[in-house]
């Protein structure tokens, strides 16, 4: 119980500190992208407009949340050491893993707030677009039969909001949380925040190739031993980030089953737990 209070206090302070660093200003760029995009594509058909809006908004949401996860996590340990706040905290009866957990919780809270705000903005613009398209459709079909009107309305609503967008947004959050946890692991043995950021970005790209490397390795293709060794290393040491890229197909209208969503969320949860446990393990022996 006492440790939970400690984690809560560190998490809250981390979130407050990050908010004070004005990280939410990136939302202005997101808003500009979403609203500006809507204005720019106004001359396209409504199906194209909604497709573009979803493509750009969810893509931007994924970019911003991934960047935020990496940058916010990579910065905190060197900053706390530079400010010497880490010594003040760890001089008290605070286990090192609680310190890391509190920091991670604070960053996850920041990511959750950022994704909630971006989702709210995106869904608001989508709703406005849908209302406009529905009003235009009703006016155009004023003299048509009720069946034709119902079909036209169904066409508009089918291309705007669908319930699958919500699990898609949750998966963006899980991927960002995974990246935060991975960056935390790197930062426990890194010597500078630049090294941590560079490593995390490199792992981000390699992680997207992990699925290809895994398939290549497990298919047992007859190639050089060193080639197989390399793919095995990638498959074993790096996270499968492609597993979290479901939003591209969700935007295109592919329905996500509960089983697939829970499986993906579970995989994300395992990665987060593993990276956190390894971070705590390495950090517990680090000389400060």
């Amino acid at each position: 119980m006492r440790l939970a209070v400690v984690v809560w206090a560190i998490g809250r302070n981390t979130l407050t500190d990050l908010v004070r660093q004005k990280v939410f200003y990136f939302l202005l760029i997101f808003a500009l992208l979403v609203i500006g995009n809507s204005a720019f594509i106004a001359k396209l058909s409504f199906q194209e407009q909604f497709q573009m809006l979803k493509d750009i908004s969810l893509g931007a949401m994924s970019v911003f949340s991934s960047l935020l996860a990496i940058l916010a996590t990579a910065n905190f340990l060197p900053k706390d050491m530079e400010d010497r706040t880490i010594y003040t905290i760890l001089a008290k009866p605070v286990p090192r893993h609680c310190y890391l957990l509190g920091k991670l919780c604070g960053i996850l809270a920041l990511l959750a707030i950022a994704i909630l705000l971006m989702s709210g903005l995106f869904l608001g613009v989508l709703w406005l677009g849908e209302s406009t398209a529905l009003a235009e459709t009703r006016a155009q079909f004023a003299s048509a039969s009720p069946e034709d009107l119902a079909l036209a309305i169904k066409e508009v609503t089918a291309s705007t909001f669908n319930a699958n967008l919500l699990p898609g947004i949750l998966i963006i959050f899980i991927k960002a949380a995974l990246l935060a946890s991975l960056t935390l692991f790197i930062s426990t043995f890194a010597t500078s925040s630049i090294f941590t950021i560079l490593m995390a970005v490199a792992l981000y790209f390699i992680g997207h190739l992990q699925a290809t490397a895994r398939e290549y390795w497990l298919s047992g293709v007859d190639v050089d031993w060193w080639s197989r060794l390399l793919t095995a290393i990638v498959a074993l040491l790096f996270p499968d980030l492609q597993a979290f890229n479901l939003t591209d197909d969700i935007i295109a209208g592919t329905a996500i089953s509960l089983k697939l969503f829970l499986g993906t969320a579970a995989l994300g949860g395992i990665y987060i737990a593993v990276y956190f446990a390894l971070s705590a393990f390495v950090f517990s022996g680090r000389e400060l």
Binding site: A211, L236, G263, T264, Y271
Partner: peptide, 12 residues
């Protein structure tokens, strides 16, 4: 985690 990753990829 390899089996879980493989199963998820097939399900996807």
């Amino acid at each position: 985690m390899l089996p879980l990753q493989g199963r998820l990829a097939s399900a996807a």
